[in-house]
Design a protein around this nucleic acid. Structure first.
Length: 574
RNA sequence: CGGGGCGUGGCUCAGCCUGGUUAGAGCGCCUGGUUCGGGACCAGGAGGCCGGUGGUUCAAAUCCACUCGCCCCGACCA
């Protein structure tokens, strides 16, 4: 492609609205333009990259025997009503009406539609397993679109669905996807981790997220370099930092102590001159209308997802001040689990075995010392604690790391949720109607691009992996008006095209600095400078990411570039 | 939905508090010329109903009200 003929509107300055790196660079590099909040135009460069990503996804999905469909983004409301998600999704689902007033919605995913196809056509176990996928635009009315292409209201997603007769079959389909996803993200040149994930409101048992570490992300991943353990913070488990001081010995009885105006853990700890690890934190929560008390070590944080799993509730919130007073007779700051009747108390497992700790006394300005969980109140232990900095791996005690990440893919075992709610059954070997077990697997196409940009950029712009860069190489004659340079560039351009290299030819009549800056900005992985060294029959081959420059004879340039590109591209699966 | 910020040529921003000639700058863009190894230089030029509506005033980019849009934090998020 001739750069002079292309629409690549690069920007010298960062647009004011862009905060995260990928957003800034995609805007500056002329990849995208915003149309509205969370709605973007993908211009030529973005489209080229996204198509390359999609091609990789297709090849790897096809390689595991998945079949590509294309399903509507516009769905009748009944489809979603049937599964119950029309209500569950709330405002996240875009809803509209047709001219006759019939309710429709825009698909966020396609479990329902796929299930409808399946239940109409899959009749026998002989037709299983099936893996169906599509690459489609999805819509979500995000409460807060942000971070450029990372959280948007319209985006492209590869979603696939597996249908199996039995859990063992699902295990196979799931594993196929896991392997395919690794191949896809490897081929896209990303550094990622597959982590254990919370299965969420979707139901289902096992679930893994593919995460890329970046500050632009919104998820946290806990990982261990030594053991390879990796999990979403929502689900991660760890060994807490041991208590700062040992618990007082003896079979002591709870005893009130006056703690005037000492409310927060820090205040109480300072006042009593004991570390936060010797305190108990009591939280009053209203889950699906029922009050609960969650008890944790003073320095620990409640994990919302773990609390939800422990109680099995749909949603919960902290109790209002009046509710706390009404239920426990004291304000937040003096609450504790001792002497409570009729409220379920859930204690974090980190308190198991502790004794003679300090908790609130359920009496303003008083705390209790010598509280022993399980003795002074009934302790029902659950893992409620969010993993914190400094924790160590459960089994080995190896150090854990907490990193901010962005989710680029998710695979999970759906189970029978849709088969049951929507009636997807087949006849098994014995002619008995059996519900089909499903899996669901997604990849955010734009997020793969964003992750590539986030991962690989410097002050000059992006340096995308070869496999997803819009072009593989850019030819930059230093001075296009120089007939000799132009002739050499023309020739190299033709040679590279003949070798099927994705080549961009910067034939613009601009000063070299501008062309170098632009090339660096849009992130083309290789650049060939054709300039004064041509007098010696040489051109420069520059690697964008490392800035490494080698001189090669013009005649060998095309082959050298081809070889460099080949060397970086992992092969497709078959 | 709660909190904060911002809307002025394509981009980045100044001007607004303290109303008053023709609304500015840099970058970009167009024309001509000189340049040509990391965002060149000279000369000339085009481009803005100051987000919208209503109000106050002799007079509004500037003050007031409403409204729309965008960004950020929080809440939320298969």
């Amino acid at each position: 492609m001739l750069w002079s003929r292309l629409f690549i509107p690069t920007l010298r300055e960062n647009p004011a609205e862009a905060e995260v790196v990928s957003h800034q660079l995609l805007l500056r590099g002329g990849y995208i333009r915003q149309l509205g909040a969370g709605i973007y135009n993908y211009l030529y460069l973005a489209q080229r990259s996204l198509l390359k990503i999609q091609t990789i996804v297709r090849e790897e999905m096809d390689a595991i025997g998945a079949q590509e469909f294309y399903l509507p983004g516009l769905n009748p409301a009944e489809v979603w009503q049937e599964s119950g998600r029309y209500d569950v999704m709330g405002d996240n689902l875009f809803r509209l009406k047709d001219r006759y007033g019939r309710p429709l919605c825009l698909g966020m995913t396609h479990e329902e539609v796929m299930t409808i196809i399946a239940r109409g056509e899959l009749r026998s176990y002989k037709q299983l397993p099936q893996i169906w996928y599509q690459i489609q635009t999805k819509f979500r009315d995000e409460p807060r679109p942000k971070s450029g292409l990372l959280r948007v209201r319209q985006f492209i997603m590869k979603d696939s669905y597996s249908f199996d007769l039995a859990p063992e079959g699902l295990d196979v389909s799931y594993e196929k996807h896991r392997v395919a996803y690794c191949r896809i993200f490897d081929r896209c040149g990303l550094d990622y981790v597959a982590v254990e994930a919370h299965s969420g409101a979707m139901g289902g048992s096992q679930s893994q997220e593919f995460m890329v570490a970046t500050n632009a992300g919104e998820d946290y991943v806990v990982s261990c370099k030594q053991t390879g353990y990796a999990a979403n913070l929502e689900k991660a488990v760890s060994r807490p930092v041991p208590p700062a001081v040992p618990d007082p010995d003896g079979d002591l009885k709870p005893e009130e102590i006056h703690t005037p105006n000492q409310k927060t853990i820090e205040e109480v700890a300072a006042f009593l001159k004991i570390p936060a690890t010797s305190l108990m934190k009591s939280l009053v929560l209203i889950a699906d209308g029922t009050p609960y008390i969650a008890v944790l070590r003073g320095d620990h944080q409640l994990s919302e997802t773990k609390f939800q799993s422990a109680t099995g509730c749909q949603e919960f919130r902290p109790a209002h001040p009046e509710e706390m007073r009404q239920l426990l007779g004291a304000d937040a700051g003096s609450l504790g689990p001792v002497g409570i009747n009729g409220i379920r108390i859930i204690t974090d497992a980190a308190l198991e075995g502790r004794k003679n700790m300090v908790s609130g006394a359920n009496k303003d300005d008083y705390h209790l010392k010598n509280v022993t969980p399980g003795k002074d109140y009934t302790a029902e232990y659950h893992d409620l604690r969010q993993v914190a900095e400094g924790d160590t791996e459960v089994n080995t005690g190896a150090p854990l790391e907490i990193r901010k990440t962005v989710e680029i893919g998710h695979i999970f075992k759906l189970g029978y949720k849709y088969s049951h709610s929507m009636g997807l059954n087949v006849l098994d070997h014995n002619g008995v109607e059996t519900p089909v077990i499903m899996g669901s697997y997604g990849i955010g196409i734009e997020r793969v691009l964003c992750a590539g940009v986030e991962l690989f950029s410097d002050d000059n712009g992006m340096s995308l992996p070869v496999s997803i860069a819009p072009f593989e190489v850019v030819i930059t004659p230093v001075k296009i008006a120089d007939a000799g340079l132009k002739a050499a560039a023309d020739k190299l351009y033709e040679e590279l095209k003949a070798l099927s290299v994705d080549v961009l030819y910067d034939d613009r009549d601009l000063s070299p600095g501008v062309k170098f800056k632009d090339a660096d900005l849009i992130g083309v992985p290789y650049r060939v400078n054709i300039g004064k060294k041509l007098a010696d029959g040489k051109v420069e081959l520059v690697e964008r990411r490392t800035k490494k420059t080698v001189e090669v004879p013009v005649a060998e340039a095309a082959a050298a570039i081809k070889a460099a590109i080949e060397a970086t591209l992992p092969k497709a699966a078959h």
